[in-house]
Design a protein around this nucleic acid. Structure first.
Lengths: 339, 339
DNA sequence: ATGAAAGCGCTAACAC
DNA sequence: GTGTTAGCGCTTTCAT
């Protein structure tokens, strides 16, 4: 059985409280007793029971993270970064993957709150913020990650997705492409923001918007690579087909490129393609994929910082929004061999 | 503030214990009181405080998972599957990523035990099993995932890696390749087992082992794709170069293919390559990559089952080893266009 | 069928 | 400096 504070106290004939004080680094203990206690802790290999500590203190030294899908490389990297940063501050990450389901996500929110997390980080797949009410009831600080929720004045850490869309589109524009399509998504702030950036860039380039060049995929509807494939085929079958495409995600882009090549188009000569997310394997794809890098590790760092800050403040500060600037990574799919 | 059992009890003028009984589904409560209590719980939106419950009952309904790197697609998928299965049994997954460091892993083991996990699942990057002693002290059941540890009689759930190595090599053999190389790894049971399977298959095919055809990479030394690249270059610079390579991982294989092509070799015509792990993007690589699929989701299911079983048994049963059989997935890198 | 008493291992206030 | 007294919110055992 693991050693308890009481065991240390008994062995040394001091009170349990004194031991607890040493444990927590309180200064009202004589140097001598402190030494004896520390030595005994070492000797008996004492490790505090975090459950008991959590119950007594009301703080669990725990941060909950909910992501739509931990198998998505973006969220996996985010979790990794977050976990590493929190560990340095003695915090433990409780991870939940919502399986892309709003119901599961809601369940996990309640669940993590019941487990007494000191802060809750959510990359939400809900469409509104009512699910966060539970966190308010618990007075648990909450940070939205990656995706904003409509009608919320919440803390947010994410990519500047409008900028992401603009950078991607401007990059295609700089390659002298003028019929620039967008294969997008819907239902998330990331989707609408990237679309907005795309439109802004077109406007800035004095390209009239052509509704036929925007296709929206329902990413709940299946594998994104296949959806991207379909979307590209639709685009290329139209008489006025595009000479460039900005895809909402790399996975969509991968499928889109496959479709283009199957239809005899050269990438990037006939059609340039850029994705978003900068998958680790981007460089090794059939056509190495240009993409928008979101600085995922940096996102995790900011999120953990903000979480700790919120935990530390007695009164909840005004909600903050932290936008990490993305950057273009050029590879062959929009590369030098382009026309 | 969240509702507590006491609030329900007071509101209904029954004892806290009766409420607790209803909460836990005990039958020694009259149907009427039960109904009143359940209604009140609903009304006050009662959610049990899992920390208090954990402290009182000694069970946290929590399972800890430690992986070397959550950003590795294999471990991410494992975590996803595990989390989904545990959720169905009301268990919560506590995830820790060890950053490929044995020291961090050890730290996380202690950490999760202090948090009172009911079982501990570890894909370990340690070289021996002494780190698991802490779990024994806590009487916490423990399952090794993916990698066995030498000198351990522990529960294990993982791929049948000897079979993986044999299947991969036999597949290359069936393509009439006879100079089959192996780009391997070291320090893990997966590495030595796959190597063993490779050798067994060679022996079965009456191919004399050629030490010049086995290269071992130190995967702690950097990016696996670059290591694979280097390894392939070494292999091809030798006078008696191979006509096929089985790589320990897909990432190694990806780098290896790149190197081969840079050196003017055609894949698979001049050299066939098969990896292991079956990355989600395998089909979209510059040369779609043949691989060994490990049935990761199935691994997660078995692991969660075993964990729950161990938690449920009063006396620890004899350690079990569960080996999931892998299977070959053929793509272009060893595909039909082969000689 | 109901509840009183004790306690899980720790922390937080306040005495001495 | 040190220790005492009270809990945190729940479960467990055992009376009634």
């Amino acid at each position: 059985m693991p050693t308890r504070l009481k065991d240390i106290a008994n062995a040394l004939d001091v009170s349990l409280v004194t031991v607890s004080k040493v444990l927590r680094g309180k200064t009202d203990v004589s140097a001598e007793t402190r030494d004896r206690i520390l030595r005994k802790m070492e000797e008996l290999n004492y490790k505090p029971n975090m459950i008991a500590r959590g119950l007594a203190s009301g703080r669990s030294l725990t941060v909950g993270l909910i992501v739509p899908d931990i198998a998505d490389p973006f969220f996996a990297e985010l979790a990794r970064s977050l976990g590493a940063h929190l560990r340095r501050s003695q915090y433990q990450l409780l991870l939940a993957s919502a399986d892309e389901s709003a119901a599961v996500e809601q369940h996990e929110i309640e669940n993590l709150l019941q487990r007494g997390v000191d802060a809750l980080l959510i990359a939400s797949c809900q469409t509104n913020a009512t699910g966060l009410d539970a966190a308010l009831r618990h007075h648990t600080p909450c940070v939205l990650l990656d995706r904003m929720l409509p009608g919320t004045q919440a803390n947010f850490v994410g990519t500047d997705d409008v900028l992401a869309g603009r950078l991607a589109t401007e990059h295609l524009f700089s390659l002298r492409r003028r019929r620039i399509a967008h294969i997008g998504s819907e239902g998330t702030s990331t989707a609408t923001d990237r679309l907005r950036g795309y439109r802004e860039a077109l406007a800035a380039g004095r390209i009239p918007p052509d509704p036929a060049l925007t296709i929206t995929c329902d990413l709940h509807g299946g594998r994104p690579d296949l959806l991207g494939h379909d979307a590209m085929r639709q685009l290329l079958e139209r008489p006025e087909h595009p000479d460039a495409v900005f895809c909402y995600s790399d996975l969509l882009a991968v499928g889109a490129i496959r479709a283009a090549r199957e239809m005899g188009r050269r990438v990037p000569e006939d059609i340039a393609v850029i994705g978003c997310g900068n998958l680790p394997l981007s460089a090794y794809l059939e056509v190495p994929l240009s993409s928008i890098d979101q600085g995922t590790a940096e996102l995790g760092e900011h999120a953990s910082q903000l979480a700790l800050e919120l935990i530390g403040s007695k009164v909840p500060p005004a909600p903050k929004s932290l936008l990490v600037p993305p950057r273009v990574v050029v590879r062959a799919s929009t590369g030098a061999s382009a026309v």
